[in-house]
Every structure is written in structure tokens, then in C-alpha cells.
């Protein structure tokens, strides 16, 4: 695994995330959906580390 010699922060801007989402979502209401994602609170989910194997 590559380890950089110093802390590196990789940031994706809001506009780029929007463009990428719109490109991948492939529905007419992609822009509307993106705004909802911004405005809605994070829904509950189970992080990978806490998921139990079947």
C-alpha cells in the first residue's frame, strides 16, 4: 500500500461531486435529487466495520 511521506488531503469540490453524480445517476431528475441529498440529513446506516457477516 502506498503511503505518502506527508499528510495529503484530497478534496472533491461540491460542483465536481454534482457533475459526477449527475453523470452517473442517469435520470431526468438528477439535479433535483442532488439538491435533496444536500438538504436532507444523513440517513442512518450501518458502517462496514459494524456489519455482521451472514
Amino acid at each position: 500500500k502506498f503511503s505518502p511521506p506527508c499528510p495529503v488531503v484530497v478534496v472533491v469540490t461540491s460542483t465536481v461531486i454534482r457533475n459526477a453524480f449527475t453523470s452517473l445517476y442517469k435520470h431526468e431528475n438528477a439535479d433535483e435529487k442532488f439538491v435533496k441529498l444536500q438538504e436532507n440529513d444523513w440517513r442512518s446506516f450501518v458502517p462496514v466495520d459494524l456489519r455482521q457477516s451472514p
Partner: peptide
């Protein structure tokens, strides 16, 4: 130990990371 910030990722970069 300076912290470096890369230029913002491109749309193609972002699509790759999302996927």
C-alpha cells in the same frame, strides 16, 4: 510534516471515487 492539498479532483476522478 506539511499537509499538501492536491488541486480539486476532476469530474472523471470523482466518478471513479464514487464508483
Amino acid at each position: 510534516f506539511p499537509t499538501f492539498t492536491f488541486p480539486p479532483a476532476t469530474t472523471e476522478d470523482a466518478k471513479y471515487v464514487l464508483q
